[in-house]
Write a protein that binds this DNA or RNA. Structure first.
Lengths: 190, 190
DNA sequence: AAATATTAATCGATCGATCGGTTATTTCAT
DNA sequence: ATGAAATAACCGATCGATCGATTAATATTT
């Protein structure tokens, strides 16, 4: 049998993410995606069951890419504070190096689509993050508060910094990053 | 001449917000909005020029409602820490009392539509918030960091708490709120 | 009666999806 | 070793449904 063309699959993948960032859910369509990917509209249905299936699978794939990068150079013997800083830096690097991926995730997470689709659970991708926080809490270095809330103080400030950076409002400089690392740490430390 | 029916205008307003929260930008349409509002499709065009005009005007109106509630009981003679807590509580109350408004804003802010539309500038609605932070910085009570970044540590944790509350994951209890007020304050205090 | 709000009906365009036909690749009997 | 059969990727064309938008006609008000 004939092989699936990975280039085609990848082209659809990238075209969808690009287009969604440019025109949003309201205006995106299979025909536009096909045209951008230089592929027939019908070919998309070889790889994906439907428009929703396409968007959902891309979401999971992008989130996987993010989690992979998030835990780079992370050693479980690292002191809590050092591990925290490492993850923060990995996170910002992912955002800056993958603007379209990051902005795609942001838009997707805010849409009702994420609840409508029965997505593979992505929380398991971030288990090491939860474990780090639990360890910090056991050692009395982190506030004894729901880990979900603690992580809120780590992720969203970085997301905001990255977005400001893309809009040209503020630079994602080492200075600004260090300020954020300090503020986030002040928020979650015991 | 015949009056415009405020009920109709309000019905369109609410129907759009409800529907957008239920089905998102990808599936919303003028016909669905009209049906939900018990109004003819053409009637919408009496009040709004286009679909984009409709969404944009609703966005500004909702943001205005939010800013009004945000500054309730706010006295500029209040100590920095007390003013901060008042605004945090006002913010969470707005989110909890107006789930559909709040979720609408969240979805809208993440979509490319917000850049595409030439919306009335909404930043002026939140000037008192910026002034409070500037005052705190002058008094040495708040970290000397860009106010935008400081506010990030106040808004997003509350947003996350409200969303968790709506999903039934965590309760937006007084305990959880107090924890957040403490964490946010730890993050921004000098 | 005049003016305006509201409606149902309808426009061409585009939507997501599917179809039959074609091409590329592998399998396998000879 | 070879070529017909089988398989599935791939595409152009097109489906019925719905889109945003407009219209002419009707209803309601002053």
């Amino acid at each position: 049998m004939r092989h699936k063309d990975d280039n085609k699959s990848e082209a659809i993948f990238h075209a969808t993410i690009e287009l969604l960032n440019e025109i949003g859910f309201s205006d995106i369509s299979m025909s536009k995606i096909a045209k951008r990917a230089n592929v027939s509209q019908a070919t998309i249905y070889v790889y994906f069951e439907s428009k929703e299936d396409l968007l959902g699978k891309i979401y999971v794939k992008v989130k996987q890419k993010m989690s992979l990068q998030l835990f780079q150079h992370l050693d479980e013997t690292l002191p809590t504070r050092d591990a925290f800083e490492m993850v923060m830096r990995n996170m910002l690097r992912f955002m800056l190096d993958n603007e379209s991926y990051f902005m795609f995730l942001e838009q997707f997470a805010a849409s009702p689509l994420i609840g409508k689709l029965c997505l593979e659970d992505t929380s398991s991708m971030f288990i090491p993050l939860f474990e780090q926080m639990e360890k910090g809490k056991r050692l009395g270095e982190i506030k004894p508060i729901e880990t979900t809330f603690l992580l809120t103080y780590c992720y969203f400030p970085l997301a905001q910094l990255a977005k400001s950076h893309f809009k040209g409002q503020y630079e994602a400089s080492e200075d600004n990053l260090q300020n954020m690392i300090r503020m986030s740490w002040d928020a979650i430390k015991a």
